[in-house]
Design a protein around this nucleic acid. Structure first.
Lengths: 358, 358
DNA sequence: TTGGGGGTTGTGCGCGCGCACAAAAGGATA
DNA sequence: TATCCTTTTGTGCGCGCGCACAACCCCCAA
């Protein structure tokens, strides 16, 4: 049988109310009595009963989550992780509100975070895609003492509760290692940002740094890296013609590293032509990427665990606010290397998540 | 506010006791009243409050877990997963007893499972390493209606509650794919079972099948596969001299696939001599394997998620017994491909597990 | 001696549910 | 109509904890 407050009270010769005051540090306890109670607690190894505690606490905490355009498969996976967390914490009196935002529009982001602030949440989950607006938002939350969990994009200088996501630098490093497999002694590789805000996005810069560093350290080959941004990624024709020209200018192209989840857009634009002897590394197990992976048009995908990012973000807020536990400031998720032969298991695995609430 | 039993009772014009009887199907409710209550429940979308329910239920369920020799790093990781699950479910009134067993001794296994049966547990977690004894045990549990969660070794013909672990066939397939990287057109590869019961172990046979099938389907190369069992794996000298001879007989050896977590024993035995141009694929992120991975003596490790196996095994028993949820019979864990560049993230990731208890 | 007041301690209710038991209703028989 | 039995329905306590409030003690001033 586990130790209850009542057991402590009896052994220490006080009432349960006094023990309660000691446990919660509410004061108004005579120092000698406090010491006595604390000693008994240590002796018996008291641990509060989370179930009873949650029931009696009987308040709801309200969390706000900023989610981006649902049409983008990557962001919809993050949303589904948030939804899972919502279901899992419902019993604990947690309410999660989601606010939708356009991923390409900084103004809209600013408006959305203002809405979030107006709703006076107890905690916030956000992917700070826009450097300026994100920093500003973090500062405001700091002033209002609202804990913020960051996902997807790390902001080292701003002080959030935690960051959950990948080590961007290392993911670029791993991508380089994967492209390096079976590559010729001399070759050109393309680092392609299919993003409208590439210059602003710290995580893309970090990936590039990691990517370059790998080839800098490996002297066995002579590799030329060409980095390109292509912002109009949703215009297949433009993408196709741009890449056609690139290929003409670089006939020795041996590998392509697409720095986000949009590798499929390039291959869609090429109308499923197979790129002979050109390896492609991308991110994320979104359905269109998976189709190309299965068809050997993408060789490797690095999984960023979007579902887990959303899920753990919420869970960490709950751990901090409700359960008053320490949470680590940086929580890097594994850099899953996904090939055609093992991709199925990453998809099924999302179904059932184990328990972080102790 | 969430819907409570009391709300249902009021709206349906009955007492909470009656609603309770309907919810738990305890009978003794007039058919018309039952229908009425059920309708109101659907209308309001009642979901039982797991927290209050667990508190009021106020019983402990006792689970038994069979764990193997703690010295083996693989099994100690499984144990640590079980321990995490124990902590996570303590609040829900779950008690986990562990029974230690020698992984090389079928008789000891039989004795241990008898001890487990004598303790009359509500559920059992076991890795059925020994085919005959495992089958027998599963049959007995079936008769006594004790649910069994299997990990590590799948037993297709026996009817357990669930299996949690890898798809062995596919893991062999992936291993072959990894060895295939950068391999010459003609080569010999070694499939090495460092196990005393290799012929008996279904999962090792499945891995071999998957491994062979990969090369059978890929006609671009001509690969000769030599499968060997070496039972005295804990005698470095013997292992060293045996492998030395093997290498003499097969100078074109291009790859080694060690089918379990003991790849490090081979490399230890070779006293860290680097095997030039021989790729090594093994299993599991146990410390000695990691050391060889970091030193480039092992090229790939496939992670079997031992911690997660132990953890999810217990969680699934709790889901079934306490929460009366459906659990899927086969739960394959991802086949993580681990290289030097991403191994660190799989180690940290074990720290905090999210929540499967809804 | 009485009356306050601050510091300290004890008591009791409620959270939502499970379950035992009491109460009531309906039906059959004498 | 009274009695007994069966079926159905209602009531109340307890799970362990959080928190509001009541009760108590002791010291000092009037």
């Amino acid at each position: 049988m586990r130790v209850r407050i009542k057991d402590i009270a009896e052994k220490a010769g006080v009432s349960t109310g006094t023990v309660d005051r000691v446990i919660h540090n509410r004061g108004n306890v005579a120092p000698s009595v406090k010491a006595q109670v604390e000693q008994v607690m240590n002796e018996l190894g008291y641990k509060r009963n989370l179930i009873a505690s949650t029931l009696a606490y009987n308040r709801t905490i309200r969390l706000a989550a900023l989610v981006f355009n649902e049409e983008d498969p990557y962001w919809s996976q993050i949303s589904s992780g948030i939804e899972k967390a919502r279901e899992a914490t419902l019993h604990y009196g947690v309410w999660v509100d989601t606010f939708l935002c356009d991923q390409r529009n900084p103004q809209h982001f600013a408006k959305s975070v203002q809405q979030i602030l107006d709703s006076r949440p107890d905690g916030v989950l956000v992917a700070p895609l826009f450097l300026k607006e994100g920093t500003q938002f973090l500062r405001t939350c700091g002033e209002k003492k609202i804990p913020v969990a960051l996902i997807n994009t790390q902001m080292s200088e701003a002080k959030a509760l935690c960051y959950i996501g990948q080590d961007s630098y290392q993911s670029g490093f791993v991508a380089a290692r994967l492209l390096n497999f079976g590559m010729k002694k001399r070759a050109t590789v393309l680092l392609l940002n299919l993003d409208s805000q590439a210059a602003d996005a710290q995580h893309l810069l970090d990936k590039e740094r990691g990517f370059r560093d790998y080839f800098r350290k490996d002297h066995s080959k002579s590799v030329r890296i060409i980095a390109e941004n292509f912002a109009a990624y949703d215009q297949p024709k433009a993408l196709q013609s741009w890449f056609g020209k690139f290929l003409q200018n670089h006939p020795d192209l041996a590998g392509i590293f697409v720095t986000n989840s949009r590798a499929y857009l390039l291959l869609d634009a090429l109308e499923n032509k197979t790129l002979e002897d050109i390896n492609v590394v991308g991110f994320d197990l979104v359905p269109p990427n998976l189709a190309h992976l299965k068809a050997n048009r993408i060789n490797f995908l690095i999984n960023q665990n979007p579902v887990l990012q959303g899920y753990m973000g919420i869970i960490n807020l709950v751990n901090h606010i409700l359960l008053k536990q320490k949470v680590s400031e940086v929580q890097y998720l594994p850099l899953d290397i996904v090939v055609r032969e093992n991709c199925d298991y990453y998809l099924k695995g999302n179904l059932s998540y184990p328990l972080a609430i102790y």
